[in-house]
């Protein structure tokens, strides 16, 4: 995938990035703009059908995803930021490819044929193709020791097993800019996601284990690929010592020398400023 073919991209932010993780959304857009990509937010997008819909109304989850697919203009890829959203959208797209009856229903419901060639790409895919910007290694992140945390984003259901996964991308890219990635035990451990609301007693030990794992590995911070993971680590970890948690896109803005906005950092529940100041990554 070449940068020049990616000038115009449809963008599906999803509910989390649109509301509780605005700092993720804004930094991601900044990174894309820096790479010369024009993101056009999918007009009138709705919930992807994740978690609750597919948990108890899989029919509704499918139609919610389909409505989003039907809004995507032809001929340009659809960029998705959230690992849960992309799983829902890709699952629906896969079903449309496999099941002619589902296509018929889609047409009847949304008044157009499904675009079976639509490319649904994750932010990581863009970064893999363009993240280095052809630049020489730099010291922008100055030895910042981080634990790369992928959560469940690398795990797909069997029908999507041939989809690309990007294990190692955060390590690879952030190291290119001088950060030091650590090998640790919980890189792809589930964060507990929505159980955080109804069963915090189950989720807290899980996120504590993840946080403690990062601390034991000698990390100064965690880097997350998913806004849900970020939130759970922040609100459900009750250890005394907590490391700051960055969205991958936030660290990329620093790597590229773009200003890390103060109002992003103030949205963090675990204050990342002391670490960034100590590392001289912000003034």
């Amino acid at each position: 995938m070449k940068t020049q073919t990616l000038e115009n991209i449809s963008y599906f932010p999803g509910c989390s990035l649109a509301t509780s993780a605005k700092e993720n959304n804004q930094s991601l857009k900044k990174v894309c703009a820096h790479m010369g990509m024009r993101l056009q937010e999918l007009n009138d997008w709705n919930c992807c059908g994740s978690s609750s819909a597919h948990s108890i109304r899989s029919d509704v989850a499918f139609h919610l995803a389909c409505r989003n697919l039907s809004l995507a203009p032809k001929g340009r890829p659809l960029l998705v930021a959230c690992p849960s959203c992309i799983l829902r959208l890709k699952s629906a797209h896969h079903r449309l490819k496999e099941d002619p009856a589902a296509c018929e229903e889609y047409e009847r419901r949304w008044g157009r044929e499904p675009d079976l060639d639509l490319q649904i790409i994750h932010f990581f895919e863009l970064m893999k193709a363009n993240g280095h910007l052809g630049s020489a290694p730099s010291e922008a992140l100055q030895g910042l020791k981080f634990a790369p945390y992928y959560g469940c984003m690398l795990a797909y259901p069997p029908q999507l097993r041939h989809e690309n996964r990007y294990y190692g991308l955060m390590e690879n890219l952030l190291s290119h800019f001088g950060a030091e990635s650590l090998i640790w035990d919980y890189a792809s451990r589930c964060c507990g996601t929505f159980l955080s609301v109804a069963r915090p007693d189950v989720v807290t030990p899980m996120v504590n284990q993840i946080m403690q794992g990062a601390i034991n590995a000698g990390a100064e911070c965690l880097v997350t690929a998913c806004a849900m993971c970020h939130l759970n680590l922040e609100i459900r970890c009750n250890l005394k010592e907590k490391l700051p948690i960055f969205h991958f896109s936030e660290l990329l803005t620093l790597a590229y020398g773009l200003p890390l906005k103060k109002n992003w950092l103030t949205k963090h529940l675990v204050d990342p400023l002391p670490l960034l100041k100590q590392r001289r990554l912000v003034a």
């Binding site: 649109a18 609750s52 069963r199």
Partner: peptide, 21 residues
């Protein structure tokens, strides 16, 4: 409790098309 949570999320989607946390 988990079911209640799911039901409230679905209610929100029904009302707004998106989730209002």
């Amino acid at each position: 409790a988990i079911l209640s949570f799911h039901q409230e999320v679905l209610n929100s989607i029904q009302r707004y098309g998106r989730t209002h946390k």
